[in-house]
Simulated assay, not measured.
Amino acid sequence: MTRRLSMREADAGDRHGLWRLHTRSVSSLCRGAYSAQEVSTWVDLLRPEAYMPVDPPRTVLVAEWEDELVGFGQLDPVRGELEALYVAPETVGHGVGSALLSALEALAWGAQARTLNLDASLNAESFYRARGYVPLHAARRVLTPEVQLVCTRMQKHGPGELLPTGAGVGAGAPRPGAARR
C-alpha cells in the first residue's frame, strides 16, 4: 500500500520536528560529500528556535506521509531564493524532495519570480540538475570562520523566461512551450 504524501504550510508546532528532520538529513545524507568535522559543525549549529516563525514573504512547506513529517522546504519568493529543502533519509528516492520542490517552484512562479536560485550542497547538486537547475558557480556557506561548506550556486528560469546563453535549447531561446515576452 502506498502512503499518500500531503503538504501544508508549517506552523510553530512544527519547530522541533523540522529541527529533528534537518539534523537527521544532514547527518545522514551529507556524509561522504563533506568531512566529519563539516557535518558535525553544521548539525551543532542547528537550533529548534531557528525554524519558526518565518517572516513574510517566506514560506515553509512541510511534507507528511499520514502524520509523519518526511520533508520541508523554505522559500523566499520575492528574492527568488530556495533557502532550504531537506527530506528524511529513508524517503530519498520516493518523490518527497521532487514534490516539495515542485510545490515551492509553483509558489515562486505564482509570486512572479523570474528565476529561482539556491546553493546546492554537493550531495544535492545532481538532484537539482535533473530538475532543470543550471550551475552558475562554486560558492561557500560560512558556518564558522574555520568551517566553510563548498556548494554550488544554481538557478532555474521560470516559465516563459529566456534561458541564459549556452544553456541548452539554443542561446537565448525560450524553453519549449514557453511564451515569448
Rank of each mutant, 00 (worst) to 15 (best):
R3K: 10
R4Q: 13
R4I: 06
E9T: 14
E9A: 12
A10N: 02
G13E: 09
G13L: 10
D14C: 12
L18Y: 06
L21D: 08
L21E: 10
H22Y: 03
V26G: 13
R31F: 07
G32A: 06
A33M: 05
S35V: 08
S35W: 10
E38A: 15
E38R: 06
T41E: 05
W42R: 04
V43T: 05
L46D: 08
R47H: 14
P48E: 09
A50Q: 05
M52E: 08
P53I: 02
T59Q: 09
L61V: 03
L61E: 00
L61A: 01
L61Q: 01
V62I: 12
W65Y: 13
E66Y: 06
E66V: 10
E68I: 06
L69T: 01
G71Y: 05
F72E: 00
F72N: 01
G73Y: 07
G73A: 08
L75I: 11
P77H: 07
R79N: 03
A84Q: 08
L85V: 09
Y86D: 03
A88T: 06
E90P: 07
T91S: 14
V92F: 12
V92E: 09
H94F: 11
H94I: 03
A99Y: 03
L104R: 01
E105A: 03
A106E: 15
W109F: 09
W109S: 04
A111D: 06
A113R: 00
N117H: 14
D119Q: 15
S121K: 03
L122Q: 15
N123M: 09
S126V: 11
F127T: 00
R131G: 11
G132Y: 06
G132F: 03
P135V: 02
P135W: 01
H137P: 00
A138R: 07
A139V: 10
R141L: 15
T144N: 01
V147F: 10
V147S: 12
Q148F: 03
Q148V: 06
T152I: 14
R153K: 14
Q155N: 04
Q155L: 12
G160S: 06
L163H: 15
T165P: 14
T165F: 07
A167E: 13
G168C: 00
G168N: 05
V169M: 05
V169T: 10
G170D: 05
G170C: 02
P174V: 11
P174L: 12
P174C: 09
P174R: 11
R175N: 04
R175Q: 07
P176R: 12
G177M: 10
R181Q: 08
R181D: 04
R181N: 05
